[in-house]
Write a protein that binds this DNA or RNA. Structure first.
Lengths: 229, 229
DNA sequence: ACAAAAGTGTTAAATGTACACCCATGC
DNA sequence: GCATGGGTGTACATTTAACACTTTTGT
């Protein structure tokens, strides 16, 4: 042990809660464990932090190795350090939460000899370790962030109709929103661009498509603007 | 190395940003380092996490050892894992932020053979490691939390005049608030109890004292109430 | 022509903001 | 009696919430 560090070290891992929106449900990506402990149980993707990589890098690496997901919205959530969260030894985990758009990132059902799948958050299996607690924390964070930051767009394709955006808010926040008021509010923020395209292949009047204008949002934010729904 | 963990481990520490309010300034507690690296520089209180203690316990232990502060508001802030934040070796630190009321917790200038002191956040010395970044993160968090959660009371004595509460908001958020509107708003929330006591030893009309009614706040919160200033 | 979702405005209530004077107390 | 901060109300502007019908398109 180097210099003043005369104690045994906790192990350090990352775990990632990946959310996606699938038609009518908020989903989470889980991995079926093949090793003990909790072999056969579902768990959050994650793994050990290497000594030569940052925490963010570790999260992105594990995510790619275990699920094939790359290049997605990722943010540190909370660090869990209960003494017996891993029955083998002391493991502290830095939890992340991530958002993906299902269209753009279709599931690699099985990578790295593991089984990966999406589960509706309203209908989860038993999870390994304290992963239920981590997931609850992530859900709280998602609900909070959605209201005060424009992160919902991460769950949608680049081009989307307003109805999808409203639907996303309704699913995640679990309450109905008034269509006219919702549109008025989101459009009055002036951070969406109305595209020339419209929806295709729908059995009714096609909706206009919009995209989120991040550059404009950033400019407005610097000028004191605050996103809020 | 046990089981599947074939890599070297990062070291794990906690660092604590303790805020207090001193008449006209927001202050932070700093420790003068006696060891290399950064010997002689000021740093946040903190130290290594032991394998048999939780992160919160480690933060409270280090805080007591280095500053004598006990029994204060403490909350996990963010985990910093940049590769070279400590020049000796890879150290990941779980940062905490804490709030104390200066009246109740007078500084132990020097404990554990170290020099501890309060510094105005507007006039800080150079800090060791990435502690400036940690402190900035804590300040952002404090400003955010103050608006949406009743944590300001942690910086005040149990019994306080409304003017102190307003002053606290003005100092931390760095903008002036309208006296009548502030009082109207905070009193309309109905989470303060007006005490029978009044201020003492002031050279003018003495103000009524109030205390924060946490039980009432918790009850209202469960009923859907949201604190906001 | 009908089913399905898109799109659109007005009103009333609640909330936020701006603003100035008298009051109580200590010296 | 004066200096100091304590305490209070009203008018106006803005924001939120509730609410229903017409339009477009595909079948």
């Amino acid at each position: 042990m180097p210099y003043s560090y005369e104690f045994q070290r906790p192990a350090l891992t990352v775990d990632i809660v990946v959310f996606a929106l699938d038609e009518d449900d908020l989903k989470v990506m889980l991995i079926e464990r093949d090793l003990k402990p909790y072999a056969g149980r579902w768990a959050l993707p994650g793994g050990f932090v290497r000594v030569e990589e940052t925490l963010d890098d570790a999260a992105r690496r594990e995510l790619e190795e275990e699920t094939g997901l790359t290049n997605i919205f990722l943010e540190q959530l909370y660090t869990f350090g209960a003494l017996n969260r891993d029955p083998r030894e002391r493991v502290v985990t830095v939890a992340y939460f991530a958002l993906v758009n299902l269209e753009g990132h279709r599931v690699q059902a099985s990578t790295d000899a593991r089984n990966a799948a999406w589960f509706a958050v309203s209908d989860l299996p038993d999870l390994a370790f304290d992963h239920h607690q981590i997931l609850d924390t992530a859900l709280d964070r998602l609900r909070g962030k959605l209201r005060y930051q424009p992160v919902g767009f991460e769950l949608l394709p680049k081009k989307f109709p307003l109805r999808s955006l409203q639907h996303l808010y309704e699913v995640v926040l679990d309450r109905e929103l008034d269509k006219r008021n919702f549109r008025k509010k989101i459009l009055s923020m002036d951070i969406l661009v109305e595209l020339k395209e419209i929806e295709k292949d729908v059995a009714h009047r096609a909706a206009k498509l919009y995209r989120f204008d991040k550059a404009k949002y950033d400019r407005k934010t610097r000028g004191g603007f605050n996103f809020e729904i």
